[in-house]
Design a binder for these strands. Structure first.
Lengths: 192, 192
DNA sequence: GTCTATAAGTAGATAGAC
DNA sequence: GTCTATCTACTTATAGAC
């Protein structure tokens, strides 16, 4: 296994993240990364033997990043938690031409290896469970299945908004979606 | 220009559509298509000189298909229109491993040529405008900008649901999203 | 009009140099 | 431990055969 804290490795990962988020998993190569950091493409294979390894490393870091954020919101009021969560997507949209790591990988789902597919599913399961919990805190009468559906719809709304914000060059779509998210969560006859 | 009504051309387009929807624009090639229809990859270049041409043909057909559907709903009640529209996405999800043409191309946006990017934007503009019109029919007091925001959020919800339905292997997500769509459209304090 | 031979460049990966 | 020479297969595209 390559050194987990190598500077070069981190540098490659950073570039991988940017390329994944702008172009997609199937539209960048070891060669692109090699050019960016100034080595030969085969050097990149030392740090990441297969392309799947790059995807797995990116997802592991992203999962850590997002779940840490959610954990850090524990002592905030629920509406603020949702705002903070949505702001992660809003800041991704503000970068102009980037989607989020998980959303982009989800779009490339059919071309990923089994391990990466499983990691991606686990990520969405965790985030949607968290959203379901927030929904139940807002509306205590909500059944667990209904809350989970609400969590899934919320995630879909945010991912879709970021996708279209990028395509339509309207970063503000994501913050508008955050408002729609609260509308979905807080009110209306949403029945499981 | 190649013959617009060639059988071979249509056959290639059909396979292109399926490959685009499952794998994405950057994960299939003229070669894949050639194998599927039983010719050499260079033959496919006769019908579609560049890959961008395949994307443009797919979008043109898809745009036609969806806008025709929307037009055909003119004499139906508004809630039924929304159901019919959502059912397009639901049937895409039921195919198991496919996203929709426009959603997938949106995910590959940064790698597309300018013409295809423009075509994609025009498509979403048209559909979202239609959704905004439906929103104003349901809620006559809604301002035009607020209605448009609602249309954009609705589209985001459906695209995101289909993306995640595919990834999480839960086709029913899209029909659940259709319910959430009506909740968004029909009720709640959604303010621009 | 339809299709193929051919080619320049790229993707992903291996074996091995330093 | 770090990196490169090298390889096979693939991608896109052109020129030209039938």
């Amino acid at each position: 296994m390559p050194p987990p804290t190598s500077d070069r490795r981190s540098e490659i990962l950073e570039h991988s993240k940017a390329l994944l988020r702008t172009r997609g998993f199937n539209a960048f190569s070891h060669r692109d990364l090699a050019t960016l950091v100034g080595v030969k493409s085969s050097s990149v294979h030392y740090y990441f033997p297969s392309k799947e390894d790059i995807g797995l490393a990116l997802m592991a870091a992203y999962r850590q990043e997002i779940l840490s954020l959610l954990a850090s919101l524990e002592h905030r009021p629920v509406p603020e938690r949702l705002e903070q969560f949505a702001s992660v997507f809003a800041s991704a949209a503000s970068s102009g031409d980037q989607w989020c790591v998980a959303g982009m990988l989800a779009s490339d789902y059919a071309t990923l290896g089994e391990d990466l597919q499983a990691e991606l599913r686990r990520f969405f399961d965790a985030v949607e469970a968290w959203l379901a919990t927030q929904a139940q805190l807002i509306r205590p009468g909500l059944s667990a299945p209904a809350a989970l559906q609400l969590g899934k719809a919320s995630m879909a709304l945010l991912e879709g908004s970021l996708l279209l914000a990028r395509c339509q060059q309207e970063p503000q779509r994501v913050s508008h979606a955050a408002k729609a998210l609260k509308a979905l969560m807080g009110v209306g006859p949403f029945s499981g």
